[in-house]
Computed example of a mutant assay.
Amino acid sequence: METKTPLWFWILSIIFLLWNLIGIGSFVAQVLMTPEALEALPKAERELYDSYPSWTYIVYFIAVFAGFLGSLGLLLKKRWARTLFLVSLLAVLIQMGHSLFVANALEVYGNEALILPVIVTIISIMLLWFANFCAKKPWYN
């Protein structure tokens, strides 16, 4: 007897996929920012962008694309989705830690600089938890 996959799994998995697509969009927008758009930023923000070493963009890439691929794996009910969500979470922690504590985004944006990193980190933790939770269900196989 085959156990039916619950509707809430599909709904949440699609929401998580859309969330990760937003992350990819954000990454692409930042990487492809034109010199004119960068010049239009306030001086402190321009200096902040200029201070990021290239490895932070690699970590950002890993965070968003591992999350996206993990979401695809979740929809396909693959156990490797958990590994990708773990990789994404670790990359998020490195990226956000650098931004907040090394690049000093808090000095540029104030306490508002905490909002998005906290949300992204919480959702990354939720994705990993959800993938682990689902992997234990008979309908996930």
Rank of each mutant, 00 (worst) to 15 (best):
F61H: 13
V87Q: 02
F27G: 00
K78E: 03
Y60G: 05
R46I: 04
L38G: 10
E47M: 14
Q30E: 05
L93I: 10
L114T: 07
M33Q: 13
L41P: 01
T121H: 00
L18W: 02
L89R: 09
M33V: 04
A63P: 04
I123N: 04
I14T: 12
A81D: 05
L89V: 02
L100I: 08
Y109I: 02
L114Y: 09
E39S: 12
W80G: 09
A105V: 06
S124M: 09
N104C: 03
M96I: 03
F85H: 02
W19G: 01
T56F: 07
L7R: 15
L18I: 15
V87G: 03
P6R: 12
Y109P: 03
I58A: 14
S26F: 03
I62E: 01
I115M: 11
V108H: 12
F16V: 11
Y109K: 11
I119C: 07
L48T: 01
L116P: 00
A40C: 09
V31M: 06
E39F: 04
R79E: 13
A66I: 06
L21Y: 00
V64M: 06
E107W: 06
S88R: 08
N20R: 07
V120A: 10
N20L: 05
L21H: 02
L21F: 07
S13F: 12
S26L: 08
L48N: 01
E36G: 00
Q30R: 00
H98M: 08
L41D: 02
Q30Y: 00
L21P: 00
S13D: 11
E47F: 11
K43P: 02
G25P: 04
L72N: 06
L75C: 13
L48P: 00
Q95S: 08
I22E: 05
G97N: 10
L72H: 09
I123Y: 06
T34Y: 01
V28K: 04
P53V: 07
G70V: 09
L75F: 15
Y109H: 10
I24W: 00
L89C: 02
F9I: 11
S99G: 15
L12F: 08
E112R: 15
Q95T: 01
M96G: 02
L38A: 13
W8T: 13
V59R: 00
